[in-house]
């Protein structure tokens, strides 16, 4: 509990740093958006518009003001929760993101859970059987996960499990039959179908998400297992491990009760990174599985020069990164007494 309190204090102290990080992130994105050779006015009114319409739209978008005023206005809007108007969907960007982000959160969370549940034990086991055949197999499998293009693996997966075997629900989040019958509550399809007690819809949603989630899980598993193996190998060479053996501890005790708790800090950091990468929206996975998530949204916005949407999406990604970092920082002192400040 003491760790939790200290963690809270640290989180509060880090809040200012968090704000500065986010403003910096927005500044970079904003500047990049302004110097890009894309005219947001043309994107809004089309290239056949008259000069008068163009000028009006330019004024309406605030683009006649100096860049720093535009930035100030944007930041002011963000502070009030207004991310601007998407020129593509003609709706507030915040609404768009509220629609697409839960899809990404649902997919990435399942993916990272698969990655943690399989990746950490595999990494520990590989370290235990270092350079023997179980280790070689685990290493090869993770290397494969690391180096295989996701769109290829996704397509092959669809081909086998959807087209041939019919085990997977295929592209999209749920069968069309249920698409409008499920009441939206959290935006997470699995949660919403459960909440409304519609078991058939839940099964359908599960069969749709399983394949892409396993695929993403495989990628984060590859990363998590590889890093865990490395941390564990170093840890197992330390002298306190010998002490544990001297007390009569079994190898399982040595691995799970002594060495693993000591590498949780770096492992948590790796997991947070992997999770952030998934949340960022895995454009290719979302494209292959027609998954209406954040990655797909940002990419489409970018192609149609919808800068408010791109900025809004980037902000969400940035907030995810910073928050996950903060969460792991709060966990450190709970996991390792040496990182507790007095």
């Amino acid at each position: 509990m003491r760790g939790l309190v200290l963690g809270g204090v640290m989180a509060a102290r880090g809040f200012a740093a968090l704000l500065i990080t986010l403003v910096g992130l927005l500044l970079v994105t904003f500047v990049v958006g302004r110097v890009m050779p894309i005219d947001p006015v043309v994107a809004a009114v089309g290239d056949k518009a008259s000069a008068e319409t163009y000028a009006k739209a330019r004024e309406a978008l605030g683009l006649d003001q100096p860049v720093w005023i535009q930035f100030g206005r944007y930041i002011g809007g963000v502070a009030r929760g207004d991310l601007g108007q998407s020129s593509l969907s003609n709706r507030p960007v915040s609404e768009d993101i509220a629609r697409v982000f839960p899809a990404t959160v649902e997919l990435s969370t399942l993916g990272i859970l698969v990655g943690i549940i399989l990746g950490v034990p595999l990494g520990v086991f590989a370290a235990h059987r270092r350079n023997r055949w179980p280790d070689q197999i685990i290493r090869s499998v993770s290397l494969l996960g690391y180096s295989t293009p996701v769109f290829w693996l996704g397509l092959i997966g669809l081909l086998i499990f959807y087209a041939q075997l019919g085990w997977s629900g295929g592209p999209g989040r749920i069968d069309t039959a249920y698409r409008y019958s499920v009441e939206e509550w959290s935006g997470l399809m699995l949660v919403d179908t459960l909440y409304s007690g519609d078991w058939d819809a839940f099964r359908s949603a599960l069969s749709h998400i399983a394949l892409p989630a396993l695929l993403l899980g495989y990628f984060s598993l590859a990363y998590i297992a590889r890093m865990t193996r490395g941390f564990m190998i170093e840890e197992l060479s330390k002298e306190y491990v010998t002490t544990a053996r001297l007390k009569g501890a079994s190898e399982a005790d040595v691995l799970w009760r002594h060495a693993l708790p000591n590498v949780l800090v770096p492992v948590i950091t790796v997991i947070a990174l992997a999770y952030a990468q998934l949340l960022e929206g895995t454009v290719l996975t979302e494209t292959v599985f027609a998954w209406p998530g954040l990655g797909l949204y940002i990419t489409n916005s970018l192609f149609s020069a919808d800068m408010p949407a791109v900025l809004g999406g980037t902000l969400v990604v940035g907030v995810c990164f910073v928050l996950l970092n903060k969460i792991s920082e709060i966990l450190y002192p709970i996991l390792d007494p040496r990182t507790r400040s007095r």
């Binding site: 330390k238 002298e239 306190y240 010998t242 002490t243 544990a244 053996r245 001297l246 007390k247 009569g248 501890a249 079994s250 190898e251 002594h258 708790p261 000591n262 996991l335 390792d336 007494p337 040496r338």
Partner: peptide, 28 residues
């Protein structure tokens, strides 16, 4: 056997290592 060794170490024989900075588990 490994089990035999586990039953022996700590119970019948023990060993003190060189440097407590490294030989104690830092997070317990």
């Amino acid at each position: 056997s490994p089990r035999g060794w586990q039953a022996l170490r700590g119970k019948k024989a023990g060993m003190i290592l060189q440097d407590p900075k490294f030989s104690l588990n830092p997070i317990k």
